[in-house]
């Protein structure tokens, strides 16, 4: 165990071991499940479930979504257990229940494991073994492949690890009985290609935080200029994957119109980030250059905020056009 993780354990231990009572409430356990990430997972899984060619009983569909949400929450809790040392260092994460000493690491680990098993078991009953297997693999991928292996080793961490966040629509699609098809693979590809520009935009103006924690994010390792170019390249690839989806059974005139507009805006914002000075080293800069860096960081913030709206809107229009086509035909 590394020294930083031992320190966090000691902080939790000092506040809990004396009398084995914690002040953590249900809200703290809810916070362990990363509710904001969970909302995105639930939404994309729901869209996968709605768009799948097979129909599903609404009660079983709701139960499946509940299990997918619980599985996402379990993965979040396991990630917080493993990352408690670096969470204590970063300003964005230091108030989380573990680094703040509200609960013991063993409680969080047990919570994550029990939730993982319950969610996979529940999905196998509510839907099918394929969906449950995909959910189990997603939890494993996020916890072991991303958190344990990639996050601290390579600047490609969120590129490869992004697959964990891309699985939920596939899980939803499989839960409805659609199996694994080209359509579900394109849904996977869209989130997979969306993840790098989304996280690197954040990393451009938060790289100090990541650097302090020793996480090799792209701006810290390859530099801000290379990261900005890669953001733009991924924005183009993302648009291409949306065109790919248009030629599958999920494509519709409404989808193509909205996706075209959404991707055009995404590319424009990514272009602005590419041409900006976001994330450049501010040491020794004159006032004019410093202003350019600050303006660039605003462009990165805009892209980060827009990328969240983009994903919700894109998946929302997919579900809407599918439902509307059902009414029409």
């Amino acid at each position: 165990m590394n020294a930083a993780r031992q320190t966090v354990d000691n902080v939790a231990g000092l506040s809990l071991a004396r009398h084995h009572m914690s002040l953590a409430g249900p809200g703290d356990y809810y916070a362990l499940m990363k509710p904001r990430v969970m909302s995105l997972v639930v939404f994309t899984a729901m869209v996968g479930l709605i768009c799948a060619p097979a129909s599903m009983n609404p009660v079983l569909a709701a139960a499946s979504i509940l299990c997918i949400a619980a599985g996402a929450g379990a993965a979040g809790a396991l990630n917080m257990w493993y990352d408690r040392d670096i969470d204590a260092v970063m300003s964005r994460t230091k108030k989380r229940p573990l680094p703040s000493g509200k609960m013991a690491p063993s409680s969080v680990l047990a919570f994550g494991i029990i939730m993982s098993m319950g969610s996979v078991l529940g999905l196998s009953m509510a839907a099918n073994y394929l969906a449950a297997g995909l959910l189990a693999f997603t939890i494993f991928y996020y916890f072991v492949v991303y958190s344990m292996w990639l996050k601290r080793r390579t600047p490609q961490n969120i590129v490869i690890g992004g697959a964990a966040g891309a699985f939920p629509p596939m899980v939803g699609w499989a839960a409805a009985g659609g199996g694994i098809t080209p359509e579900s693979l394109v849904l996977f590809a869209i989130i997979f290609l969306w993840t790098p520009p989304h996280f690197w935009a954040l990393a451009l103006y938060k790289q100090g935080d990541y650097g302090k924690a020793g996480i090799p994010m792209m701006p810290n390792i390859k530099g801000a200029k290379s990261t900005r170019l890669q953001i733009f390249v991924y924005a183009i690839l993302l648009a291409a994957s949306c065109v790919w989806l248009a030629v599958t059974s999920l494509g519709s005139p409404l989808y193509m119109a909205v996706a075209g507009l959404l991707n055009f805006t995404f590319i424009v914002l990514a272009y602005k980030v590419w041409r900006s000075k976001a994330g450049d080293d501010v040491m020794g800069l004159d006032e004019a250059s410093l202003y350019k860096v600050k303006a660039g960081e605003k462009a990165a913030r805009n892209l980060f905020a827009y990328s969240i709206i983009y994903l919700f809107a894109l998946f929302g229009i997919l579900a809407a056009s599918h439902v509307l086509s059902g009414f029409g035909g």
Partner: peptide, 18 residues
């Protein structure tokens, strides 16, 4: 014996109910 504080007992009760 350690006597738990009111906050600790309240937090434990909430956890148990949850």
């Amino acid at each position: 014996y350690y006597t738990p504080s009111t906050e600790e007992l309240s937090a434990r009760k909430k956890r148990n109910v949850a």
